[in-house]
Design a protein around this nucleic acid. Structure first.
Lengths: 221, 221
DNA sequence: ACAGCATAAACAGTATACGAATTTAAGGTC
DNA sequence: GACCTTAAATTCGTATACTGTTTATGCTGT
């Protein structure tokens, strides 16, 4: 018997494109048009429309008069989201610290090892993946579902931003170092320590972004 | 010339029902069916469907196999949202304190007067309205849009909960008193004081909820 | 009576079709 | 050759029709 709880097409398409967005497989040049995607999936426009409109309302896509595109985050919006992160993530991580399973800690350790390996290789994509793996791992252990979902909602939006900051060598070093420290404090399960470290983590991310942003602003045409 | 930026039917219906939900005009017995609403508006199912699905994804409605209904918030979810409120609202209010206009303060004062007048009249609906007016006023001044929208997203969901807690006389007194204090600290524009008071405000709301919840649990069948 | 099964009703999901709005392209004028 | 006008193409919003699934209803047999 098929154990599938009857997945609707619109949900399949929603998940598919949410994944593509979260994995950074879309560029700002991509214009997503419902009819085109519909013919790729051999379905009608409607489920595609449903999926894209949902993604747009959740902030993952921006709807324009000519198809859906990745949203253009302004400098201001990015700073605003960093403020949200400062407020939410330290507490969320502290809660997660008490709830992490041994499996969670194991995959955290694996991801941290991966992260450190990129110091030698300089593989930015791998560092980004490891970073995402670490984040997903501890986020999955956050017992407050509403809090976790709120964090997830804005994280996907600034994915591109985080990717961009990784081109700076200093930021890479800081990130890898913080990853290792995160493994330590999560393993200790001391909420207070986790809270402080995650706050430092977010602040470091903000500094990296500001550094990258000012550099880009200088060299911009 | 018509200055209307061409409002789509789906947006009209969305706004209409969001308003009804936020004003508490729907009960848990109401089942919203797209075909029914469509014939009321003399439109097809599609725009109604769009609006309801959007409301559902934002948490204002729950979609079942038999129409849309108000979502049943579990005790756990409500506590989770209170945790979010503790994390976000103090800071948001502090930011708002620096940005409040004189008009904002004037309408705040008006709403606080309204709130206090309900002590004599015992008009719970009016107290609720005044409370909402106060909230909307300071929220509208929060300069961090992302933060404000995040707060708005969950507030509508627990509207019914907040309404329910107002039937307790002690909670009413506490609320009115806190309203007056809020006017004072917002007028002083001291972010630190605002931050602390709003934290106390959220905590008081949580206590009121817990009191109402335990009472209800005792008298439940 | 009541459990189990068949049938009907209600509703959401999906398909197709049409119209309106807006951008892009083309052509014509000065 | 620049600018305005007009036509075409593109894409969204809405309407209508159909399909499948879930819930309710009623029937049958014990």
């Amino acid at each position: 018997m098929s154990n599938q709880p009857k997945r609707h097409i619109k949900d399949v398409i929603y998940d598919e494109y949410l994944g593509r967005i979260q994995r950074g497989e879309l560029t700002h040049e991509d214009r997503l048009v419902d009819t085109t995607v519909a013919s790729e999936f051999n379905v009608s426009r409607m489920p595609v429309r449903d999926a894209f409109m949902r993604l747009a309302h959740e902030g993952y896509l921006a709807s324009s008069t000519r198809g859906f595109t990745l949203p253009e985050l302004t400098h201001r919006q990015i700073l605003e989201i960093f403020e949200l992160r400062r407020l939410l993530e330290p507490r969320a991580a502290a809660l997660a610290a008490y709830a992490l399973t041994d499996e969670n800690l194991a995959s955290l350790e694996h991801a941290v090892d991966l992260s450190e390996s990129t110091i030698a290789s300089g593989d930015i994509a791998l560092l980004f993946n490891a970073s995402e793996m670490i984040r997903r791992t501890w986020l999955s252990a956050v017992p407050n579902i509403e809090l976790r979902d709120t964090i997830l909602r804005y994280m996907a939006q600034i994915q591109a931003v985080r990717m961009a900051t990784l081109h700076d060598t200093a930021s890479q070093r800081t990130l890898v170092s913080l990853h290792r420290q995160m493994l330590t404090v999560f393993s200790s399960r001391k909420g207070v320590d986790v809270e402080l470290l995650i706050l430092r983590f977010v602040l470091a991310g903000e500094e990296s972004y500001l550094r990258a942003h000012s550099t880009r602003a200088e060299t911009a045409p």
